[in-house]
Amino acid sequence: MSDEQFEVHDARDIIARPHRRAEIVYGIASFAFAIFLLSQIGNELVWKAGTPFTKQPGFWPVIAISGMVIFGAFEIVSTIRRNRRLEGEPIAGELLRWLKAVEYLIWFMAYVIAVPQAGYLPATIVFAAALAWRAGYRNAKGVLAAVGVGILTVVIFKSILQVKIPGGAVYELLPRGIRGFMIQYF
């Protein structure tokens, strides 16, 4: 199963995807990461004296990193060739799109940090409403729909399926009867 929607003009399109020039940035970054991992082989892996290489604890990571380096090097070469041959969107525009997504990573992490403090249900309601507002749904219908999705998620996963999400620190302030109920179900 793959992961991206794209327009099909020919049956071959489903097995040959369009190229983007910014692939070179990704190619160089992933290759640099592979080289960094390779440079750490001495520090991050244990090599036992007298043990054959194939039985060393580091054998499998070395195979994986070597593969990353070799495939990564060829990936850079093939991307440079394709960038010379094919037209495409400017690289800077694509990088901006990646940067734009970082905002939502921050939103997500803020939500993650808020849950243990504010409690799952309250944090989810606030997060859903605020993110829907940010995403451009600035009317009662959009915000309430997002809040509804949030409440439904909490009810299905925490109240019914009882997934492990601890109660918020703020629940400690509630009266005893309600506190236990909130910790268990919300």
Partner: peptide
């Protein structure tokens, strides 16, 4: 190449 590198990752 990209698939190979990602798989090794």
């Amino acid at each position: 190449m990209a698939a190979g590198a990602l798989m090794c990752f």
